[in-house]
Design a protein around this nucleic acid. Structure first.
Lengths: 192, 192
DNA sequence: TTGCAAAGCGGAGGAGGCCTCCGTATCGTA
DNA sequence: TACGATACGGAGGCCTCCTCCGCTTTGCAA
C-alpha cells in the first residue's frame, strides 16, 4: 500500500482552527495524565470552549480520539525526518525509537480505546501504520548504509522489539529506556 | 508460569448462582450481537434481574466483562479436553482451532474493551492465556505424536496463524473457515 | 473601510446510564 | 418450622451525551 496522507480535518477559519488545536491539545494532555475515559464535557472545559463547539468539530468521541492519535503519529513521523536531518544515522534511529516508548495497548491508552471503536485492523490504523513504517524505514536504511546496523534487520524486527518493551504493563520510563539501550546495542553489527 | 485456575466468583447460594448465570449469559449474547457498549441496565433487563442485583455481584462493568471472558476461556479449554476424548488427534486439533475463530481485537469485541480497562499484558490476560496454551499444547502434542502434524511446529506458531485470521476486519465465517482449512492443510507433514 | 452572509460559538435542557440505598423477599441451617 | 443472614430490585441523584437555537465573529466583496 502506497502511503497516503494522514487523515486530518483541521478547519481553515482562524477561530475554528484555534479551537480545534485547543481541543486536541487538551485531549492529548488529559488522556496522558488520566487515561482516555475523561468525559467530553471535561475536555471541552479544559480547552476553554463550549460542548457545542467540540461537537461541531468532532461528531463523536471516537472522532476526537482519532484526531489526537493522528496528531501523535504526525509528530512521530515529523521527528523521524527531523532526526534524519540533524543527527548521524544511528543516533537518528536511536532517538526516534526512544521517542515513542510509551505507546501501545496499555490500560486506558488511546490505541486501546480506538481498537474498541474501530478494530485493530481498521483502515484508520493501517494508514497510520504505513506512515510510521515509511519514516522508520528511511532511518533504518540510512543506518544500514552507514554500516551502523546489522544488514539483515528489517523494520518489522525493530518494531517488534520496541513493541515488546511497550507491552510491559505500566513500565517505568527508566526501565523502558534501559531495555531500549539493550535493543540498540543488539542492532549494531557484530564485531569482527 | 504454572497454570492457575481461572478466576471465577460464582456464588454458591441457589438464587444468587441462578442470577449470576443469567447475567453472564445475557451479557455474552448481547455483546455477541450488539458489541460491548450495551448499557448495564439493558443487560440486567435482558437477564430479568434488577440493576442492584447486577451491582451486588459485579461491582463494575469491567468485572462483568471479565466474568464473560473467563466463561468463554473456560469453554475453549473444556472443548479441548472434550475433543481430545472424542476425536482422533488431528481432528481434535482442527475442531478446537475452528471453535474459536471470531475471537480477537475486532471492533467492539470483549477482548478489546478489556484491553482498555486492564491493559494487554495484565495478570488477568496472562492467566487466561496460560490456560488456553496448556489445552492447546495437549492437542498439538498428541497430533504430533500421531505423526499428523509437522514436528517442528510450536503452539505459538499455530496460535499466530489463527490470530492472523481473527485479525481480519469483520471477516465472514465462511472466509474464516476457508482460511483455517488452508492453515490445517499446511500443518500436515510434507509428503515424502 | 464597511457591510453582510456564512460560519462559528456556547450552554440550557432532555434523555439515558451509572451507582447507591433501603425496605422487602428468599434461602438454608439448626 | 423458625429465624438470621443473604439476596433482591427499583427509585432517586448525579453525571455524561448530544442537540438546538439565539448570539457572535470572521473574512470577503464592494
Amino acid at each position: 500500500m502506497a502511503p497516503q496522507p494522514l487523515p486530518c480535518t483541521r478547519p481553515t477559519r482562524a477561530d475554528a482552527a484555534r479551537n480545534y488545536d485547543r481541543l486536541v491539545t487538551a485531549a492529548r494532555e488529559t488522556f496522558a495524565q488520566h487515561g482516555t475515559d475523561t468525559s467530553l464535557e471535561e475536555i471541552a472545559r479544559r480547552a476553554g470552549v463550549g460542548i457545542g463547539t467540540l461537537y461541531r468539530r468532532f461528531p463523536s468521541r471516537t472522532a476526537l480520539l482519532e484526531a489526537v492519535y493522528v496528531d501523535e503519529i504526525q509528530s512521530v513521523c515529523d521527528r523521524a525526518y527531523d532526526f534524519d536531518r540533524e543527527l548521524e544515522p544511528f543516533d537518528a534511529l536511536a532517538a526516534w525509537l526512544r521517542s515513542f516508548l510509551g505507546y501501545g495497548l496499555s490500560k486506558g491508552s488511546l490505541a486501546s480505546e480506538l481498537t474498541v471503536a474501530l478494530g485493530k485492523d481498521s483502515p484508520f490504523f493501517q494508514v497510520c501504520k504505513v506512515n510510521v513504517q515509511e519514516a522508520g524505514k528511511l532511518l533504518l536504511d540510512k543506518a544500514k548504509a552507514a554500516g551502523e546496523v546489522r544488514s539483515e534487520l528489517e523494520l518489522m524486527d525493530v518494531m517488534r522489539l520496541v513493541g515488546g518493551i511497550n507491552m510491559g504493563r505500566d513500565i517505568e520510563p527508566e526501565q523502558a529506556n534501559r531495555l531500549l539501550d539493550i535493543v540498540l546495542c543488539g542492532l549494531r553489527p557484530a564485531a569482527s
